[in-house]
Design a protein around this nucleic acid. Sequence first.
DNA 1: GGTCTGACTAGGT
DNA 2: AACCTAGCCAGAC
Length: 103
Amino acid sequence: MNRTYQQIYQIIRNIPRGKVATYGQIAALAGIPGSARQVGYALHSSRGENLPWYRVINARGEISVLPDPQVADLQHQLLTAEGILFDHRGRINLSRFQWQPSK
DNA sequence: GGTCTGACTAGGT
DNA sequence: AACCTAGCCAGAC
């Protein structure tokens, strides 16, 4: 595993309970702004890492289209269990629930 | 080593 | 607000 992936994982581990972060946000924090896709890839190849992967969502506040719909369902449950609310279209209010590091 | 794919995003329409 | 497009770059083949 390379250093960038480790940074990505470390950042995700820092997302506090009850908050979410976007792929692009994590990419920027990991020093690879504009490379949100790589964050998605890092997650995809991270099964086994001890990560709150479910706190990572896309920039529109939605659970991304995942390879496995059951995983998306699980993600929805886990977030709800932390007190994060979804609107009737399945979207999270980012201005309310997005993690604001160092602020 | 060229091409294609995709847990994405910002910007334009 | 929804849809389209170009840009993105690590893996898979």
